[in-house]
Amino acid sequence: MKAAPFDYARPKSLGEAASLLAAHEDARIIAGGQTLVPMMAMRLARPTLLIDIAHIDGLSGICEEGAQVVIGAMTRQASAEKSSLVHAKLPLLAAALPWVGHTPTRNRGTVGGSVANADPAAEIPLVLVTLDGEVRWQSEKGQGGCKANEFFAGPMSTELPASAILTEVRFPVWDGGNIGVGFHEASARRSDFAYVSAAAQVQLDGNGKCIRCALGIGGATPFPVKLDAACAALEGTMLDAKDIAAALVADVAGLDIMVDGHASPAYRRRVAAALAARALSDARDAATGVRA
């Protein structure tokens, strides 16, 4: 036994979970527990009450709603990875999921847990920010939500209100064809925490000209960021290597790089530029049907 003592509750409804959370100051929600349990084992987290939301109806599942795919917070990462809807409508998420931990942790880890946890190196938050997704939550006071780019506040820190429970994550679906994605990561070992990760999704017209571009960087910065200026600069180009290199300069120079013991800021910035370029060219090739 490594964790500090706590009480365990298994509410049957979201309402019950929300009241428990509101009533106990040091309570924590546990979903898949693949980050929280190690944090508790190392006593970096010492909740006095664990509220297990795994058995609440309606918190798991993947469905299409208008121009979005909605993923219930409790949906296991492995279920999303196997989902045909995710593969058909969210190719960028499908490309990123195999990078999330390892199969055994994806079997337990959840989509919502990864988003609420807000590890700077996490892949699901990066995809959510890159695609301009949204999150929804519920508390005793009612429902709320916000855009992904307003949600992440720093390493392991979000704008989720203190007594709210993340309920779903919404990913926009791009309309039309000729869409391609690219995803790259640099880490010490495969599936370790990413020093830098890059996610790109592009759409081309019939002549191969880029008509829509989304590019995000994770791992290097305190939370994932979308490179809006680069995306704007790339729309209308053929996504040639020189277009990509030119478009990335200013955004990559402006990245607020994290400082930690694992990789120097200069290295992370260089790798961010390289992986962003690689993700974009993979996305372009995939959209044109060229196999990388």
């Binding site: 964790a3 365990y8 298994r10 546990i30 527990g33 693949q34 349990v37 190690p38 084992a41 664990l50 297990d52 795994a54 492995a78 199969t103 055994p104 942790t105 079997n107 337990r108």
Partner: peptide, 12 residues
Amino acid sequence: EPARSCLMFAPQ
């Protein structure tokens, strides 16, 4: 499906 039993509390 494989999972890590150290990453789960028994009541879960």
